[in-house]
Design a protein around this nucleic acid. Sequence first.
DNA 1: CCGCCTTACGAGTTTCGTAAGCATC
DNA 2: GATGCTTACGAAACTCGTAAGGCGG
Lengths: 298, 298
Amino acid sequence: MDPHLLRTFVTVARLGSFSAAAAELGYTQSAVSQQIAALEADLGLPLLHRRPVAPTFAGERLLEHAGPLLLRHRAARADVLRAAAGPARRLTVAASPLACTPAVTRALALERVEVTLRTVARERVAEQVASGSAGLGLVDGIAAPSDPLRLPDVGPLSGFGIAEEELVVVLPAGHPLSGRRGLALADLAAALWLQAPAAVPVERLRELAGVDGFRVAFRYDGDDLRTVLNLAAAGHGLTLLPASALPDRAAGVALVAPRVVHRVEVVYGEGGGRAAALAAQLRQPSSSTPPGTSAPGS
Amino acid sequence: MDPHLLRTFVTVARLGSFSAAAAELGYTQSAVSQQIAALEADLGLPLLHRRPVAPTFAGERLLEHAGPLLLRHRAARADVLRAAAGPARRLTVAASPLACTPAVTRALALERVEVTLRTVARERVAEQVASGSAGLGLVDGIAAPSDPLRLPDVGPLSGFGIAEEELVVVLPAGHPLSGRRGLALADLAAALWLQAPAAVPVERLRELAGVDGFRVAFRYDGDDLRTVLNLAAAGHGLTLLPASALPDRAAGVALVAPRVVHRVEVVYGEGGGRAAALAAQLRQPSSSTPPGTSAPGS
DNA sequence: CCGCCTTACGAGTTTCGTAAGCATC
DNA sequence: GATGCTTACGAAACTCGTAAGGCGG
């Protein structure tokens, strides 16, 4: 179970072809064949059906483990290299789009350090911090009040919440529900929804409401918030956003049940003194609602 | 960054000696030296100071990654092997001590399957399930009502909550607070506490209360609940337990703030059909009447 | 000089590429 | 018969053990 073999295994499984994987990885077809054979011999199991190439049952189990394993592996390597490169005078901050609230961006300044902000997908923030590709992360998500977000465990990270805010459902003008003052999530399960990386994922809605439904009517792949709002206004589907993301408060209806909020957390690695300093600075801006601390990762 | 090299690296770091690590791992001193040299050459960095042997800064970062990495690695291997071994007719259940409530143990029976129950430390449950060492896990912990526990992420696992219960502070007889009906956690920060694997860890109390304090006065390494209760009764320190763990309800005072409960969750791997069946059975512990056992209440 | 890590060197093993084999579409 | 995985085989690289070499206490 060498990481090397694991990498060719996932590549073969992904491409469904030994020769294509060989081309992608810079090996010969033969080498890939031998590597898969070595992996199968090591485990004493067939991992792939040949012709057509598809994972066996055991292979599928291995695939499920291999992704996170290789991710952590790369993160560890990158982090160690970064640690040895010495303290950088540039601190890059990886943030999911909705994590950059006005209060947060205002606090993003540190004495004697040049700060670079980079917007990435919500799922990537922890990963970039763990690998040292970013020194600090800002993630948003939804959770019960003063509860930590559930972040993917890609390495030893620290973090805490810095802001919590009401969530509102964005409705097109004239929508039957737009007169209401508060809505239960379960009442919206039958409606059609927008799926966009910037907004709350539909899967999370199902999870929170505890029911199926929330059918996706429209997908938007970019992370421009105004586009999401325009789509919602045009009636392409409902979406759930933090209240401050809406230019016009009347366009949305607050969620009353289940009791959930939009939450922003900072994440930083153990090795980053500079990152910890900036994180501590971020702890203050929302002194009105002090969210609890958390310790994601292991 | 071969897992093999990583393992010798952590062993050397732990023992502080190349020769001792060689003896433990069954290599010669020379082989260990070469393996460390290979790892250092691969990363292009010194990882250990010699004479005395201690991790460098980069080495410490690597150590922090190496543990979880090797854990996942072993879990993945074990899980794949177990998946291929076919459906076992024995299902072993790993449970933390306080997860085995009467209602749960009553439901632990499955048609045509021999169930083995094994009590392990709270932190080990997810690990044993991910590695296939147990087919099903029962973990307890404390959380906000109807909120999931934060389990260490050691592999692809499913799970859900099956029970929640009030938490009470166990006080010795005649304690000044024992007249009270409800207590805020922050009020107890100045008190002395028991640290025991079976009870709620003191670190978690600090985290929940958001303040320091909760000084540990006494540590108990075993997992016998009655011993914990005896220690608490003897005034060695306070402890937080689910209400049902106390034989005498008057010995404890319920917690009123922050709003937290004792929660039990089942955890099972994706591959275990039998485990999923038993888990489903645990979802409604009240309605199940397992065969071969006497009626509840005895 | 003694303990402990490093280096030199050789035997056994592994790994990859070239090239030939072979099964399926 | 073409495509694509497997096997055979040899060269290069790797890995470990024995043994000799440094270096600090």
